[in-house]
Write a protein that binds this DNA or RNA. Sequence first.
DNA 1: TTCTGCGATGTAAGCGCTTACAGCCAGGAG
DNA 2: CTCCTGGCTGTAAGCGCTTACATCGCAGAA
Lengths: 340, 340
Amino acid sequence: MDGRDASVPGGVTIYEVARRAGVSIATVSRALRGTGPVAGATREKVLRAVEELRFTPSRAGVSLAEGRHAANGIVFPNLSGPYFAEVLIGYEEVTSELGRSVIILSTKDRGPVRELVRELAGRVDGLAVFGSTVPGDVVDELVASRLPLVLISHAPRPGAATLRSENAEAARAVATHLRGHGHRRFAFLGAPYATGDDVDERWQGVRAVLGDAVEPVATAEYTVESGYQAALALLGGAGRPEAVICSDDEVALGVILAAERLGLSVPHDVAVTGWDDIMAARHARPGLTTVRQPMRELGAQAARALDRLIDGAGLERSHRTLGTELIVRDSCGPHPPGGH
Amino acid sequence: MDGRDASVPGGVTIYEVARRAGVSIATVSRALRGTGPVAGATREKVLRAVEELRFTPSRAGVSLAEGRHAANGIVFPNLSGPYFAEVLIGYEEVTSELGRSVIILSTKDRGPVRELVRELAGRVDGLAVFGSTVPGDVVDELVASRLPLVLISHAPRPGAATLRSENAEAARAVATHLRGHGHRRFAFLGAPYATGDDVDERWQGVRAVLGDAVEPVATAEYTVESGYQAALALLGGAGRPEAVICSDDEVALGVILAAERLGLSVPHDVAVTGWDDIMAARHARPGLTTVRQPMRELGAQAARALDRLIDGAGLERSHRTLGTELIVRDSCGPHPPGGH
DNA sequence: TTCTGCGATGTAAGCGCTTACAGCCAGGAG
DNA sequence: CTCCTGGCTGTAAGCGCTTACATCGCAGAA
């Protein structure tokens, strides 16, 4: 006679538990949540009935009565590379610890993003959104709706908390380091980028140091494949740059493969740097010089910021920037032995 | 205490829309959902009011009234490597197309898995669960609760649909191919494994062909790092195997790195194979011979199977196996030029 | 003209839960 | 012996929505 216990349709309800335990539904609720006093013997009866009927409170009923969903959302473009996945790991871990579920939404190759985001917004208490995954006016709408909102890797925006890693300074460090190796002609691989996004900031930082010596080059996506393709063209032609600064580790790994394919040695013939310090950067041959970005921490902090916004009644609209670190390996140029 | 927000985040309710449009809430609902007839002019008024008030129906209210959550869950151990992420991509895409949200739960390093899974089960219409992420009795409980359930990469289990990729046959193909290269002493890298899971099936297949010529070797995890560590020990010692069959591409990439570190040439000194055909397998040097597993398709089919279970009233409890394909590259041994 | 049929709309009953409030029943104080 | 107090429990009012059913006009049929 046990029906479904874990879902709305046809599930065991609190009324059945109450009847079985011989108490009222209020008592069942109090016994289960620990709100209000319940006599020991009564609690026993209730718990037994719950066990026997495999009762789990209907989430929809609870949400409606409590006025909260106990769920947070996160919107990202895709999950193909390590970057978004790592951020998601951090986000899910903290959100889960805070007693909320995580609802995901991927926007890549998705038509009705506006509708999907609205739908998502309607079932969460707060939302984390990666920059450039959602049209600006949709973000405006979210802000206007006063939904607790954290924008990740997005330029500071009034009305929403933003969280990102430091870009410009690290980009200058990369450029300076490369110039220290004696390189003179540079390419920055990673466009197209939108004003104010991470890649744009990196480009601005690089440009600030290298000026006209660096040329921006577009890639189709931030993947090994597109880095490879772009690099084949870039390195195969005349006027090959001495160093390629990539906006992303995966692109950089593609560049290294292309160089190898073209018979060029990295870093001797061409230096390469990446960004993010994904796992593969350490294992690549040569080891990829890159900028370490605290990906999981980004997700974790987004989750915590959201939590604060949610029960802090939306007062704190902070803009936080996490530190990054230049990780020098072998792909950027020869280093004295023992240096690491 | 009377709450500040009378409602689930979002604030504006169907009542306000109705008042503003000068109609009843029933009409608003009908106009929005397209159920029942609504005069053109009325619909206009309603839509305008909705627009002006930025109304989004409260999901909890809808769920309660409809008796469904319009959300499906997925439980995986972690999201670190490409495997689970790829499956998740396929799952999310299809689930989203079917008009449901995706709620995720990661179990790795999580204490109260039982509670978390129960909680999740209470807010979804169906659940996809990777094998070995959840204790057996919790699975039993889910089955008993009659929640639509798809077990991914799990041995067929009465009461739940299961979905996996073919393992044993492909494993035999790998073993046979390696033997064709003339290798004699093998190691299988990837334990510890549980009876009936993917890795166990692969091991059984390999063993069926190679018998005592293959020795199982444990790795701590399925990561590059642990493959690397395990291989350092395995290849550094005496009696080094001529071929290492890995249960996972990431482990295999770690083995290749370890071989390089030890000054061994792949495949000349030691052959290596992987499993999954992740992106990096193609880009590795040498290219990694592996078994292609349709990761996204696994997720997509899980989503579709779940959908069928949900509105098919749980009739179809299927056990499906997706085909895999041996992908021969250079890491398994020398091939005649122009071969593959 | 009266009646019928049907499109358009409103009314109200839930969906499963939480919780303010009221009621009840000891036992101790006065 | 009465009154009060405080612990325990029940009653019932929502939470925001969907939808069966009732109602109301109005057009076309008789």
